[in-house]
Design a protein around this nucleic acid. Structure first.
Length: 277
DNA sequence: AAAAAATACAACCGCGACACC
DNA sequence: CGGTGTCGCGGTTGTATTTTT
């Protein structure tokens, strides 16, 4: 037995709203508020279903909506958030007061996707669009790929790298059995670290990650990607965030092209863990 | 100037989540 | 605890407008 439709569509009007309908709906909601959308059309005198009324209110009639077109700054922020959240439009829209998820979704589909393609970036994965590197595909599983892209403490010339790694391990209570790749760096090693870090590969291969943040630093990443199709499947472990959530939580600023820069707050020790689940 | 194609955006549809009974 | 109703979300479609041929 299938679910019943949300409303009886017989006799209900569809298609574009008229000015008169808008006035009725607007006046009703301003005077009575919203208790139950199903009841709204009935009491407002509209031949519409509640769902249609809700959509019209949210996307068009709400008094707090911004009417002006999305600015370039907003567009850039949408790209950044899309890299973090994927097609979770309501989540993205929640960062833009006065903007709707529908508006942002439409803007993405009609403009931003083209803009990214012109820049040579795949709007789905945020990866640079380039031919597949078969050599890379033939590489061994996760840890091999990541290790080749992730710096290790001996890549850096500091004297205390190893000690910081050991120190950090004692600060976590994650089961080490699951860990296939650990590293940590200290203070001013970030530029080296991130210059070699391929975030895209990491998001494809890393299921979960552990991190901690404290001191303001600025780092550069060699790849302009954080979120990918596969990374949308990331399942955060208890007490941890997915890679997308992590990048968002540190308020990253992406610039598209061959490099991506991120301004973030980092702890003295930046600790990255990779798991095979 | 007219037709065709492209674009932008409003609106609809189906589904999952959640609350309530 | 399962059934039912409502809401909200994301994908898709429809249509008005603009641009191109």
């Amino acid at each position: 037995m299938g679910r019943q439709p949300c409303c009886d569509k017989v006799g209900l009007k569809r298609g574009p709203w008229t000015i008169d309908e808008d006035h009725k709906l607007l006046n009703f909601i301003l005077n009575n508020g919203i208790q139950c959308w199903k009841m709204v059309p009935k009491f407002a005198g509209l031949q519409r279903c509640g769902k249609s009324c809700r959509l019209r209110w949210i996307n068009y009639l709400r008094p707090d909506l911004k009417r002006e077109p999305l600015s370039e700054a907003e567009e850039n922020q949408i790209i950044q958030l899309h890299a973090c959240f994927g097609n979770r439009w309501s989540k993205i829209a929640s960062h833009f007061p006065g903007r709707t998820d529908n508006e942002i979704k439409n803007h993405w589909n009609t403009r931003i996707k083209k803009r990214l393609k012109l820049l040579g970036i795949d709007p789905l994965t945020h990866n640079p669009i380039e031919p597949l590197n078969l050599e890379n595909l033939e590489q061994k599983p996760d840890e091999t790929i990541i290790q080749s892209n992730m710096p290790t403490t001996h890549d850096h010339e500091t004297e205390n790298s190893s000690t910081s790694s050991e120190t950090k391990k004692t600060e976590t209570d994650i089961k080490t059995d699951d860990i296939t790749n650990d590293f940590s760096v200290v203070d001013n090693e970030y530029s080296n670290l991130c210059g070699n870090l391929d975030v895209d590969l990491l998001s494809n291969t890393t299921k979960t990650m552990s991190y901690s943040l404290e001191i303001a630093e600025s780092i550069n990443l060699s790849s302009a990607s954080v979120a990918t199709e596969s990374s949308s499947n990331v399942v955060p472990a208890e007490g941890q965030d997915s890679i997308q959530q992590w990048f968002y939580s540190v308020d990253s600023l992406f610039s598209y092209g061959t490099t991506m820069s991120i301004n973030m707050e980092l702890e003295k020790t930046f600790f990255w863990r990779n798991y095979n689940h």
